[in-house]
Simulated assay, not measured.
Amino acid sequence: MDPLPKDGESAAGGEPSRGAAPSSGVVVQVREKKGPLRAAIPYMPFPVAVICLFLNTFVPGLGTFVSAFTVLCGARTDLPDRHICCVFWLNIAAALIQILTAIVMVGWIMSIFWGMDMVILASSKEQGIPQQL
């Protein structure tokens, strides 16, 4: 049984590795799996997303509540197979969770991160970066 190669040695011949050629690399794709609440965040216009972030920062859940109504106005989400009303109620549920758990700071932190996600989604939409579905 051959010993495993040491750091800096390749498996073939025990010679130090000189670095792999760039064309011999493996392409790895990372896809984020989103839960239903996270996938229900709408792709809003950038100024609206910034306003929602501002609202979520100072009044937890308020920006998420406002973003729920953008779904009714035609904002796209990562849940294309769900009905608009279902996505609306998922956003309302997220806002209620943020409001109710803000007392113990969890909801406030969640609310700020939710607002940051809204801004990130809006900026990626404006830049035309394709989103993985």
Rank of each mutant, 00 (worst) to 15 (best):
V48N: 11
G19S: 11
I120V: 11
M110W: 12
K125Q: 11
S10W: 01
S111P: 02
K34R: 12
V66I: 11
I84F: 00
L37G: 01
I41G: 02
V30R: 15
S24F: 04
I92W: 03
A94L: 09
P42E: 00
G14A: 03
A49G: 15
G107A: 04
S67I: 07
G74M: 06
I99H: 09
P5V: 05
L96P: 00
E126F: 02
R82D: 08
I92A: 09
I112Y: 01
L4Q: 00
A95H: 02
W114S: 15
I97L: 13
M105W: 00
L121D: 12
A40L: 01
A93G: 14
S124N: 14
F46M: 08
R76K: 12
K6S: 05
G128Y: 13
M105I: 10
S10A: 02
C52I: 08
A93F: 11
P3C: 04
I129V: 15
L90Q: 06
V104L: 07
Q131H: 09
V106A: 14
L72W: 01
A39Y: 12
C85S: 04
G63K: 11
M105D: 00
V50C: 08
S67T: 02
W114H: 15
W108E: 10
W114C: 14
D81N: 12
V26K: 09
P130V: 14
V71L: 05
D78T: 05
V66D: 03
A102L: 06
R82I: 01
A102V: 03
F88M: 08
M110A: 12
F113D: 05
C73V: 04
T57A: 15
L121C: 12
L79D: 03
A102D: 11
V27Y: 08
I41T: 00
V119S: 08
G63C: 08
N56E: 06
F69D: 07
V59T: 07
L90D: 04
V26G: 00
